[in-house]
Design a protein around this nucleic acid. Sequence first.
DNA 1: ACTTGAACTTGGAACGATTCTAAGTCTCTT
DNA 2: AAGAGACTTAGAATCGTTCCAAGTTCAAGT
Lengths: 148, 148
Amino acid sequence: MITDTQNTALAQRLTHSGLRSTPQREVVYQVVLGKRDHPTAEEVFDRVKSAMPTISLATVYNCLDALVQCGLIKQVNSVREPSRYCPNLHEHAHFHDEATGEIHDVDIPADLIARLHNLLPKGYDAVSIDLSFRGSVRALHALTDQQN
Amino acid sequence: MITDTQNTALAQRLTHSGLRSTPQREVVYQVVLGKRDHPTAEEVFDRVKSAMPTISLATVYNCLDALVQCGLIKQVNSVREPSRYCPNLHEHAHFHDEATGEIHDVDIPADLIARLHNLLPKGYDAVSIDLSFRGSVRALHALTDQQN
DNA sequence: ACTTGAACTTGGAACGATTCTAAGTCTCTT
DNA sequence: AAGAGACTTAGAATCGTTCCAAGTTCAAGT
Ligand SMILES: [Mn+2]
Ligand SMILES: [Mn+2]
Ligand SMILES: [Zn+2]
Ligand SMILES: [Zn+2]
């Protein structure tokens, strides 16, 4: 479940973006990849500290920024809450469960993405789309989470 | 362009939500309605001060919250930027122009809203959808802004 | 008309996520 | 081996927003 191919992929992406591969960036990347939730920078910080106790929160922010910049993770933001980070690179939407605070990934078919782009009037050039839902997840009798 | 019918509508909405109609709430509402941009709380504060110089920023935040709560305006949030407020009650998306910082409304046809809801797996119950684009608007030769 | 409690407003303090700063370390290049 | 950047670090600073305590207004009941 680990790291060598992932780390070479990371190194390539970073150098391709003019950035360096560092131990801190590697471990932050591993942590975000390691769990299918959407951790905040603080949560990433906590998880990283077991592997690298001397890392600083500022570095975690820097690393997350670097990973977002070179397209390896995505930043997810909601109303007045800390940013969260997502390793799912497929085009997808986010469902914010107001009861639990959890964020679930929701797939978006490619044709729908195209249709969304077509909403834009002439001259509008979108580089990114953000689709998010807010609500609650009804517990389905004897059925496990379909996402995640 | 003004206020009497709007203010009765406001008063009705507020009382219906168990809130009171106050001079501060009225003027904040008028200010948000008065311009088709998407002002921050600070910008609303600045505009309100000419009509009511003694109002406080805390009250502006409180009034905006009250108006959002009873559904008269919407709160729009982007990555690590101050919240903005929108008087457009139609279901619509937002286009964030990265060059100018402006936010433009984009209509969403009703059937598309339905299709977005259908993306959700069984058990997911969304109370709100948020669709936003980020990009730039190419100036169209001798053509004015199609929105707004 | 008075009383009374709740809702509301206000200025300033507090908060918290994020960014900045200054100093030290590491790495690539020559 | 040296120099220039890139990077990390701890702590300070930032800033949009929320909280607090005190005073004011309002609605409802008497
Ligand atoms: Mn965070
Ligand atoms: Mn604001
Ligand atoms: Zn995600
Ligand atoms: Zn809008």
